[in-house]
């Protein structure tokens, strides 16, 4: 019995629990499967059809994603002779892991977080910028013309959306006067949700994230009809599955940040006190953050059903010509709000 207790202790040991189970690997896996399933379902509903249905029609085809996962896992991984093997293999794995890293500093409740730092917003923002670089590496290592083009497009896009995202995050931390998610959420609880205080920042962030995680209409770096699968053209089997998952994992992380900065974090459910530590500090606030993040993510995947894809220069023009300015405007708005708060 002691061993079992030890094991349970180990699993519930916050850093491990945090990184492996919730909101880490396992939760992200479930989230991804749910999201891909709902993306296909949403698209199917809009498109005069059902979406996945064949496997277990009663569950609306939900096990389809399990089947896909199993297929990816069992498929042969082909590593072409011409690729640069080490970066080819490492890039998607590292990108996936690093994509999840910002979760180390994003709190899901006032007490539930593995690393407490004053600069958690800064660290999270910094970590989110790394995976795209690895995608470029993957394309470069693939030694394939389409992969190269995909990487080149991605590198153009990075410069655009990363700056916009960082500016918006800066404007929000300016507004809350802190670089710590905990304090930012507290500030929102004391005052108003960020999305009301600075709606321009919220919209800009939303669009920039869509650009960053290649949602439609910004699905440019892996445009199928143009460059096959972009940087991941040469990947197969589980590596391809992983590569596909990266953008969803990044979307999840970005949306957690969105919830913490704009949607009041664990606001509605986090305040309930039942006396049970696990319920109070993990499940209820965690659930409210996660549910909000899922809703935002669903909105993002919904656009697949409405848009085609932009050309890269349109996206860059829109990014620099409009959303970049909007990001600057959002900083101005933050300043105005801060000024108003001081006046009253």
């Amino acid at each position: 019995m002691a061993i079992v207790e030890r094991l349970i202790d180990l699993i519930l040991w916050p850093p491990l629990f945090y990184y492996i189970i919730f909101p880490g690997l396992i939760f992200v896996m479930i989230f991804e499967m749910f999201l891909i399933w709902s993306e296909r379902k949403i698209a199917g509903r809009v498109q005069m059809r059902y979406g996945p249905l064949e496997i277990a029609p009663r569950l609306a085809g939900a096990p389809q994603l399990m089947a896909d996962l199993i297929r990816y896992a069992l498929q042969e991984v082909i590593i072409p002779r011409t690729v640069d093997k080490l970066p080819f293999v490492i890039a998607p794995i590292a990108a996936f892991v690093i994509a999840l890293m910002p979760l180390l500093v994003t709190p899901f409740s006032p007490t539930f977080l593995p690393v407490t730092t004053e600069g958690s917003i800064l660290i999270a923002a910094a970590l989110t910028t790394i995976p795209p670089l690895l995608l470029i590496l993957a394309g470069w290592a693939s030694n394939n013309k389409f992969s190269l083009v995909g990487s080149a497009r991605e590198s153009f896009l990075i410069a655009t959306y990363e700056i916009i995202i960082l500016l918006v995050i800066a404007s929000m931390s300016f507004l809350y006067g802190t670089l710590d998610f905990l304090k930012a959420v507290e500030a929102q609880q004391a005052l108003l949700w960020g999305i009301i205080l600075n709606p321009i920042a919220a919209i800009t962030y939303f669009v920039a994230v869509m650009m960053g995680t290649s949602r439609f209409p910004f699905e440019i770096a892996e445009a199928e009809s143009e460059i096959v699968m972009g940087a991941f053209t040469e990947y197969s089997g589980i590596m391809f599955g992983l590569a596909m998952g990266i953008s969803y994992a990044r979307m999840f992380v970005y949306n957690i940040i969105f919830v913490l900065l704009f949607l009041g974090g664990w606001s509605p459910l986090g305040g309930i006190v039942t006396g049970n530590y696990i319920l109070d500090s993990i499940i209820l606030p965690g659930a409210s953050v996660a549910i909000k993040a899922v809703i935002i993510s669903l909105l993002m995947v919904f656009t697949r059903a409405v848009y085609g894809r932009y050309r890269i220069d349109h996206a860059l023009k829109g990014g620099w010509g409009f959303w970049f300015i909007m990001a600057l405007v959002s900083i101005g708005l933050s300043a105005a709000v801060v000024y108003l708060m001081e006046v009253f």
């Binding site: 949403i42 509903r45 809009v46 005069m48 059809r49 059902y50 919904f302 059903a305």
Partner: peptide, 9 residues
């Protein structure tokens, strides 16, 4: 269309 799907499958 999402709210009121019109399927012909």
């Amino acid at each position: 269309r999402l709210a009121r799907p019109q399927r012909i499958t």
